[in-house]
Design a protein around this nucleic acid. Structure first.
Lengths: 333, 333
DNA sequence: TTGAAAGCGCTAACAG
DNA sequence: CTGTTAGCGCTTTCAA
């Protein structure tokens, strides 16, 4: 395996100093066209490419043009869209993106953050897992900008881009109640996830506001997979006094619930999903815009990287309740 | 903003040399526990973290523990699952992952590859866009390992992990013919994408084998979005002698076709998608396993990185024809 | 317009 | 067990 050629190799071949090569490689002015051409020829003939690892070392205080994005799970469509939007903005800004999945594991999250910061990323888009993020303070203090997306972090004041989860859940329940439902189940993911907690709180608030007592018999937490949700729903339907409507805390749960849902039972799910409209009956969803979220978070991150040091901001993006008539239109009877 | 502390800072604070700090930081043996403790204390008090950018520079010939993955579009569920599997393997191997989207643009692909290789990635998982990949030769010659996934590259001999696209399409058409269909449409993405070309070839072969003449009136290429596919399908149905069955070249197209499909018309689509089974009628699919593909490609990549220099291999993963009875069971009449 | 010298933060190689 | 020296590939600074 031939070693990667260096500026020295190019300099020797072109009969100039490494400084001249450096100037040519970086398009700096003050090199005779004649000389530059000789250097370019040597570059091509050797297949030289600038080593940015070495470059970054010398250019201290400069940016590495690398940002990180750490999310739950790249395979989740919501996260994937968000990541894609972040990547687009990063590319526009001339940066590359390191990606990592925490899989909701705080240990893994710390490890990945550490692997990222030891590579001197300029900034981090973080979808924080449950638990404290005080460990990020060092990183922030030494210049790594952090913007949270989807969820906000605890123990650390950062910029964040979120939606009004509580209000959205509240509106969804109000919508069901307006259509005559009073026995409304909640099926959800782990309650220690910030967004999930907020959504559940919205569910409770809306019931309380309507004077409907919350019934633990039709509430399930901790559903991670679609199959978990299907099983939970099936179990709930077998009990006495089953619900006439269901709120699903997120897309995965919604999907799982849908598979067990009897005709006529209403379903409102957080997160729009492909095909939700093609199902019969279609599923009513609380749609978020992951692209807007990723793009907003990325723009915020780069404005920080470029020197914006105003106080941390939380941007709240709107959601849309897409009423598709999953049974709630005709009412429970 | 306080500057990031260096080994020198730690050494001064602990009253030792930087070499001793280096040994402690890297967990090397031969440091008195007493001394190590002093160093650790200094590290904590300063919030020191090793700078891997500098480290990689000195440890030449060593790995940067960074791999790249360059795909079409992170937001595509198939690609997202593949990327997620790659990330899992990379993490196991102690590497981080740079991610980039080519969006089917060869210029963008080259730019991203260049940004990656200038950061001295150890290896690259590539989902190649159409066109020649000869430009990667330099990178390969100087030590960057490349493994293609999903599609193989032209103009460059690399490892690749693919499925038998042609054979799978062939089997799907044979399946439809066996159920009595003779007027079978093909709706597909851009024909210059390797997988799509193969699938279309399989479609033609199967028809020819059955003695059914191919009819350009029921063939459409270049469908990029679901809406394109819906429009194409709608148009086709309005013409004389519409098809009784359809082959969709990929999930996006399948989704779009499904939206315009009259009851009783059969649909077989490449790529399984969430909810395909919950639709009524459900969609028959040619299911690939993106996780297996990503994981296989990543393992192959790391075996290369760790010195395997046997001739390039192409691994062909199986597909599954999941017959869900989208109208083909009952036949065309 | 070009080059020489120094040094970024770290570690290999050797010396004590 | 610990330290010194040199140098990774590049860019900054200064001199020619």
């Amino acid at each position: 395996m031939p070693a990667r050629p260096t500026m020295k190799d190019v300099a020797r071949q072109a009969g100039v100093s490494t400084m001249t090569v450096s100037r040519v490689v970086n398009g700096e002015p003050g090199v005779m066209p004649e000389t530059a051409a000789r250097v370019h020829r040597a570059i091509r003939s050797l297949g030289y490419q600038r080593d940015d690892v070495a470059r970054q070392l010398r250019r201290k205080g400069q940016l590495t043009q690398t940002v990180g994005i750490l999310l739950d799970n790249v395979a989740d469509p919501f996260m994937a869209s968000l990541a894609s939007a972040v990547e687009d903005v990063a590319r526009q800004q001339g940066s590359v993106v390191l990606i990592g999945s925490s899989r909701d594991d705080p240990v893994r999250e710390r490890e990945v953050v550490s692997a990222f910061t030891s590579r001197r990323i300029d900034g981090l888009i973080l979808i924080p897992v449950a638990g404290s993020h005080r460990f990020l303070r060092n990183a922030v203090a030494t210049g790594t900008r952090v913007v949270c997306a989807d969820r906000s972090a605890t123990g650390l004041k950062t910029d964040a881009v979120v939606v009004d989860n509580r209000g959205s859940a509240n509106r969804a329940i109000a919508h069901l109640i307006a259509h005559g439902h009073r026995r409304i189940a909640y099926l959800g993911d782990r309650l220690d996830i910030w967004t999930i907690e907020e959504r559940y709180a919205g569910y409770l608030t809306a019931l309380a506001y309507a004077g409907i007592p919350a019934d633990p018999a039709i509430v399930r937490h901790g559903l991670r997979l679609a199959d978990d949700a299907t099983a939970a729903m099936t179990g709930m339907l077998a009990e006495a006094d089953p619900p006439t409507a269901v709120l699903a805390s997120n897309g995965i749960v919604g999907l799982g619930v849908r598979a067990a849902l009897p005709a006529g039972t209403a379903l409102v799910s957080f997160d729009d999903f492909l095909l939700a409209a093609q199902l019969d009956p279609p599923v009513t969803v609380i749609a978020q815009d992951p692209v807007a979220m990723g793009s907003t978070a990325a723009h915020l991150l780069f404005s920080r990287i470029h020197g914006d040091s105003s106080p941390p901001r939380t941007v709240v993006l709107p959601t849309r309740l897409v009423a598709r008539g999953s049974g709630e239109i005709s009412g429970p009877y």
